[in-house]
Design a binder for these strands. Structure first.
Length: 459
RNA sequence: GCCGGGAUGGCUGAGUGGUAAAGCGCACGCCUGGAAAGCGUGUUCCCUCUGGGAUCCUGGGUUCAAAUCCCAGUCCCGGCGCCA
């Protein structure tokens, strides 16, 4: 959230930011609320000051045994009490309104973020791994067909147990998931990350802390109630990204300067409702309601956060480098930035098997596997994440950043398509083999059940 | 789930209706040849900032006045019960 002071002093910058992001917010109303609140607050402070003085006087008069004068003062105090209650009730009302409005204002983009409307205006920063591509089959089979063929991804049966947008991984597919997790965690441990295994349900305050709420309730799964109900009871949501539990782990705390930079990684499942996305991406595991990833979360001193963002992208892309997967990096434009972010780099891996309008020249598509963002103090202010620069100084908000250490399901998609062989098997990249019991190739499984006989895949 | 104990400033910790002791840490100042000790000041948030207001886990209530009394809740500790 933006600080009230910043809003007061830089209203035009906030207005420009809203415009560039494509937000339609009545900023003047927010500014008016603030001004009116301050006037009432001041009036209330004066009244309270007077009451405190009268109150102290009562104590002294009573001690001196001057009952009549004390009684007079008590009556004066009662008058003040009534007036104060009125002023403060109105001030509280305004402040609540102001806070609610502030929670819905997005972060202000950094000056290095390109101005633009949507993903078409994102700026490609670099492309990696396209110089020495491996030889691909004439026709690369999309992962959803290949996954079915090898019987390592089963979407149909997951629809039966859970619904559309979920999938089973089986045999070598499930092994590949475990292998990718362990491989990624190892890479990031080398980079100085400390592992966390967080609780998967999170409270509303946590969702507000990182910015998923109050504005984006329709994206998340609520446990034990409708996402539109009041949050008094059964206040739990399914983790939409490990960013939420991990960032909020230190909410309302003051860290020491020596604690920074704080680097945590966490593997978790992530749940997204993907409301309004029905009809697109219905095949495959690119857009699903549950996906798993290793998330990287950084807490740093404010002066370091932009250097750290560059380094963080490097740490995330290391996974793709070691797997030998070609990818590109984008600097997201203002219109494509998420709510809490001041600047975001996307890492998109090349999935050569799936056709797309906006894919690379060689065909296939770009798949977003990581978003590395600097939130500056936006989340820190919402969640109460502070640090003490020097022991004797007052605490300041720290800066938070995070990046997926790449989404596991989508990396798997890229692997199945990019490492595909002519005979329909998939080569396991060398870096991953130690995590796959040494397996060099994924050969698949015999399908199970009568339906396979009907389809001519079993005798 | 039940019974009992608890939550106070950066940390420890007193305070049972009259406006938050004390100690520790840290910083600065005084003192000193220098240091230690000692002394002083500071070390939460908000505001229209020579000043004022709020803050003793949270939210209600009683009262002229609440850290203190009452109600509800959260979390922590101990014991009992249940449980993969």
């Amino acid at each position: 959230m933006l600080s009230r002071q910043y809003l007061r002093e830089h209203p035009e910058e906030v207005r420009a930011s809203l415009e560039q992001r494509g937000y339609d917010v009545d900023l003047d109303r927010v500014l008016d609320l603030d001004e009116e609140w301050r006037a009432l607050k001041s009036r209330g402070d004066d009244l309270r000051h007077e009451r405190n003085e009268v109150s102290g006087e009562i104590g002294r008069l009573k001690a001196d045994g001057k009952e009549a004068e004390a009684q007079e003062a008590i009556e004066r105090s009662q008058e003040l009490k009534a007036e104060l209650a009125e002023v403060e009730a109105r001030a509280d009302e305004l402040e609540a309104e102001l806070d609610a409005a502030l929670l819905e204002l997005p972060n202000v983009p950094h000056e290095s973020v390109p101005v633009g409307d949507d993903e078409r205006d994102n700026v490609e920063v670099r492309r990696v791994g396209f110089d020495a591509l491996r030889e691909l089959p004439e026709e690369v089979v999309p992962h959803y067909e290949l996954g079915e063929e090898l019987d390592i991804i089963d979407e149909a049966r997951a629809a039966k147990t859970t619904g559309s947008g979920f999938y089973f991984l089986k045999g070598e597919g499930a092994m590949l998931e475990h292998a990718l997790i362990q491989f990624m965690l190892d890479v990031h441990r080398e980079q100085g990350y400390v592992d966390l295994f967080p609780p998967i349900p999170v409270k509303t305050t946590s969702m507000v802390g990182t910015g998923q709420l109050p504005k984006f309730a329709e994206d998340a799964y609520r446990i034990g109630g409708s996402e539109t109900e009041a949050y008094d009871e059964d206040d739990l949501w399914l983790c939409p990204t490990a960013e939420v539990p991990v960032t909020n782990m230190y909410a309302e705390e003051i860290l020491l300067r020596e604690d920074l930079p704080l680097k945590h990684q966490a593997y978790t499942p992530n749940f997204r409702r993907e409301a309004g996305e029905h009809g697109t991406e219905t095949r495959g595991i690119v857009r699903v309601h549950q996906f798993n990833k290793v998330e990287l979360v950084n807490f740093v001193e404010p002066d370091d956060s932009y250097d750290r963002l560059e380094a963080l992208v490097g740490e995330a892309e290391e996974v793709l480098k070691r797997l030998g997967l070609p990818y590109r990096i984008l600097n997201l434009c203002t219109g494509d930035l998420t709510f809490s972010s001041a600047k975001t780099y996307d890492i998109e891996v090349w999935a050569p098997g799936t056709p797309a309008d906006d894919g690379p020249e060689r065909g296939g598509r770009w798949l977003e596997v990581s978003s590395a963002s600097n939130f500056e103090d936006f989340q820190a202010r919402r969640a109460g994440l502070r640090y003490r620069p020097e022991r004797h100084e007052s605490a300041e908000y720290l800066h938070t950043l995070n990046a997926s250490g790449t989404a596991i399901g989508r990396v798997m998609v890229a692997l199945l398509e990019y490492y595909q062989n002519d005979d329909g098997t998939v080569t396991v990249p060398e870096a991953l083999r130690p995590y796959m019991n040494g397996a060099e190739v994924i050969e698949g499984h015999e399908p199970v059940g009568e339906s396979a006989v009907g389809a001519g895949k079993r005798d």
